[in-house]
Simulated assay, not measured.
Amino acid sequence: MTGQPDTPLPRDGGWAAYTDHARRLSALLKEERASAERQAAAGRDGQAAVDQLTHRVAAQRQHLHHLAATLRLPAPQFGRVAPGPIPDPAEALRRATTAANAADAAAENAHRRAAQPPLLPGFTPLARNALVYSVAATVGTFASLLMFALSPDKDLGRIPLHLVPWSLCGLPALAFFAGYLTISLVGQPRIGGGGTRSRKVGGVICFVGMPILWFIFIAATRG
């Protein structure tokens, strides 16, 4: 029976070259496999980072809509932005993360400013309200003194009795409501609550302080 001839074994030098190439091929295959695994891991990490950033941007959008509604501002518009020439996905992801961090910082700053009243935000509520009522009482006192100075009874050496109700009741009431309205409009935080109008303090300043100043003025001018 005639069979195929056996394959001749390579000589020692050929076998050594064969095994050397086989080892190199095996090492190359391992390196390619490791590189592919690294790329796959980087792709998974990148996709996870993109998903996380996408959820973060969606939460930011919802927060901005809520903040705009709370501050009674127009709803923000989110248009599409043309992608920039950034060929490296890692660099693009880094820039997107930086932009998201800046957006969070801006939203936090807006929230912090909205939690403070527009008028004298660095003052405590009591100090701010007392100052507002004091300014209103001072203006009312000057108006009362001006009315007294322009009254014809003053030239006759008499107290203008027709000005007494205004000086003791009318003008203090106007000063109180002017201060109260000012505090209500620009002296209250727009979000977060915690505002106060200090009505008792305003009442003391306007309805007690103004008449005292008026009596002191009358006593000084007649004494």
Rank of each mutant, 00 (worst) to 15 (best):
A219Q: 00
R11H: 13
P172D: 01
L174F: 00
Y133W: 05
G13P: 11
A90F: 11
R23A: 05
G46C: 02
T97M: 02
G209C: 05
W166A: 13
E32P: 10
F177K: 01
A105G: 09
R72M: 05
A106G: 09
A220T: 13
R23E: 12
D104E: 13
R112A: 13
M210R: 03
A175F: 05
I212G: 02
V50S: 04
L150Q: 14
A34H: 10
A17R: 15
G43P: 05
G209N: 12
P8T: 06
G209P: 01
W166V: 11
G194V: 03
I159N: 08
A99Q: 14
I218F: 01
E108C: 12
G202C: 07
L71Y: 01
A114C: 11
A27Q: 12
D153F: 15
R113Q: 13
S198L: 00
M210W: 00
R199G: 04
R33D: 12
P89S: 07
A68M: 06
S167N: 13
L29F: 09
P117V: 15
G194W: 04
L146D: 11
A143Q: 06
L163W: 07
G195Y: 05
A22F: 05
V57L: 08
A149M: 11
N129I: 01
T138H: 00
L174M: 03
H55F: 15
M210A: 04
S134P: 02
C169G: 07
L171T: 04
P74N: 00
G223R: 05
E32R: 14
T54N: 08
P8N: 00
D51P: 14
L185Q: 00
W166E: 04
A220I: 14
L93M: 12
Q47S: 12
L64E: 15
R33V: 13
A149G: 14
V139R: 01
F142M: 11
A96Q: 10
D6K: 03
F148S: 15
P152Y: 07
F207Y: 11
G179H: 02
E31H: 09
P10N: 03
A99N: 14
D104S: 12
A22I: 12
L131G: 07
A143G: 02
K200R: 06
L120H: 09
L213N: 04
G223P: 09
P125D: 02
A106K: 15
F176I: 01
G170T: 06
R158W: 14
P83R: 02
G13D: 15
Y180D: 06
E91W: 00
L168W: 03
R61P: 10
R44T: 03
Q116G: 00
P121D: 05
G84A: 08
P118Y: 01
L174W: 02
W15H: 09
R128N: 02
A178N: 08
V164R: 03
R38V: 06
H21F: 04
A69Y: 09
P5W: 13
A75P: 10
A34F: 10
L73C: 09
G179L: 07
A137V: 06
L120M: 04
L181I: 08
I205L: 04
Q4C: 01
V57H: 04
